[in-house]
Amino acid sequence: MTDLGSDISAHQVVVRAQWRTVLRRFGSHRLAVTALLLAIIGYAFTYFVEPLTGWNYKQLSADLSQGPSSAHWFGTDTIGHDMFAQSMRGLRVSIHVSIVVAAIATLLGTVLGAVQGWFRGRVDAGVGVLVDFLLILPLLPVLMVLATRTRAIGGSSLMFVAVVIGLFLWAPLARVVRGEVFAIREKEYIEAAAALGASNTRIIFRHLIPNVMSSVIVYATLTVATAILVETALAFLGFGIQPPEVSLGALVDEGRDSARTRWWLFYLPGAVLISLVLCVNFVGDGLRDALDPRQRKRP
């Protein structure tokens, strides 16, 4: 009922929320703010694990297969690793990987999508085939194959895994940005810029991209969540980040066979992982509510 809406508040409508309004709306989304704070605190906490508990993730203690206690918050595994230190290390790794992934994917997706939408024609069709291909690609198997191929060149390091995942995750954002640019390029301020003699680069970077930032930010958050799930799934299958570095996926894999006898080895790292993804999703949901004007009728 778009015309009705515009009739109601034709003079109050803010076409695109400015940052202050966005912050205010996000701030009123309590769950999202809590989730964001939790994620930040959790991340900061990973740097204080050793001073607080006395254990780091590499250390082996004499306590083997102990349940959770005041000494070992999450218990220990069969060779004496402190599971809390390991889980927190895994948490930090996941956050690092996912941020690198999101940065790469967001940059590629935004720029390629904007270029597609602005130039149209053959450029659009060319990149479009790649986007279509990446969108339907079964990501996990392909990454597994790539992992076996790249081990020799440091393929299981944190950075390498992150970059590879990032190169595969830009397609959804590119599609969205392209669609939005298609709509924005018809707006008269873009034509006005062209009529003033603005170059393509200026139009893309000064006018188009700033105006698709809402979607970009929401998608970047989604990409963070996807990246965490992909990274841990790879590690779970043994194709991701390799020991001695820790991944929550690998911890779950090691713990799952003893889920009945030593539940803490399986359930606690898993809970950390889910909490992280949940936090990211809540933040994403809050951002969507704050940035997407269509949601504003919500009472």
Partner: peptide, 9 residues
């Protein structure tokens, strides 16, 4: 938010 491998296990 749940990884498939965890939910399966």
């Amino acid at each position: 938010a749940m990884p498939v491998f965890w939910l399966g296990a």
